[in-house]
Design a protein around this nucleic acid. Sequence first.
DNA 1: CGGACGAAACGACCCACAAATCGTG
DNA 2: CTCACGATTTGTGGGTCGTTTCGTC
Length: 447
Amino acid sequence: MGYNCDFCGHQRPVVYCRSDAACLCLSCDRNVHSANALSRRHSRTLLCERCNSQPALVRCTEERVSLCENCDWIGHGTSTSNLTYKRQTINCYSGCPSSAELSSLWPFFWQSPSPGESTCEKELGLMSITENIETTSWGPTGNTVSQNKNSAGVAEVNNDNNADMGSGWDGSSSILELRSPPQALDQPAGVTDTSLPKVSCPQTKRPSLCEDDLYDDFNMDEIDLNLDNYEELFGVALNHSEELFENGGIDSLFRTNDLSAADSDCRGAVAAEGSSVGLVNAIQPACSNGASADSVMSNKTDSVLCFTGRQAHSSLSFSGLTGESSGADYQDCGASSMLLMGEPPWCPPCTENSFQSSTRSNAVMRYKEKKKTRNLVTIHAIEGFHVTAVLSSKECGFAFPSLHMFEKRVRYASRKARADVRKRVKGRFVKAGDAYDYDPLNQTQSF
DNA sequence: CGGACGAAACGACCCACAAATCGTG
DNA sequence: CTCACGATTTGTGGGTCGTTTCGTC
């Protein structure tokens, strides 16, 4: 991640593609995401103008700068003057919007002095919309450019917590609003508003999240481990996942996904992001309502909660063979890295440990009991999943640059197919014609 | 309570070779 | 500048082995 376009390497990056985890200039964004129908579905947003590595979530109208969650928190979250900063939520787009539509989506963007001066951006004028009503994989009603026009491209968020707190969570919310509720962005540091409801999505009639909910209803073990097969996870019914969505407040994120079977690869990414984000969102109000940040983040047994998040990711991503995730995964999957930093912006540190020790120990016990079966479920899902989802770079028209998001994703189906049928000796490939002890084709010993 | 021991889990490594990438003319 | 060609690098999966973690005595 740097200060040049990840694709062309010399233009200044302007937008961030979550699906590709790439920072792109507008020209490359257009080129890359017009390659095929799948790439057109990628959800993009502005790049953080401060760190130049993360997708921007908000636009500070005072400083006229687009900021990611981290930079926004660093710049405003700890400052008492953050109340004076007026910020706007930055919406995503997909497809290949024209310059006019981009300007409609991000009116501030074209006022900004930084982007748009290169020939790269001038090409925008030649852009043609092939899917101007292209729906993304995220929004319940289709997070489209046209949809965003209704709100002038921005969902204005004041620092008044009471002002339209739930606007980002209604049926027309955009992906960004789903990921980062306005109250999380603007809630002053160190303030725990006990008047806030316990639900993460006040207007979506989600069940309240109490401490027990955190363990019982929201424990991924209760959900993903019951999956008999991976189809159940990504099937139409989504029976078990329903529980996740109900409890995590991301139901609308998935139900309306109209992804084709051919796009199942992206579907995995959707699941990964959605799951983690939902967890973060659900954890947030729980913390802000008395659950100590320290109890969540720092103790040895804090793994109860942290692993819950890890579970959500590893179980649904269908790519992490190890079943565990690194910190980078959280970054990539869209979850706030604050979760890893120990001081989430929505959860000011406090010393009181509000978790009952017995409750925690019970949760630990449940975790340990189910730990063994977890990986089996995940691996089964992986085996049946990426075989059908993988496309080679030739088949796709371009290489996936976001491989670090899912470390074990197969990049080249042809190589996998060859490796699958290659003869081995004790797991190692052998030269063609040599004696072998394992033939994947007939599964018999040839000695 | 702490050390010793075994079991389980985990990750790194290896192999051949076609495909992808790079460098040169 | 484009193309062709050779050299180099990459990536793929199953088994093995060393290390770490966990549980029991």
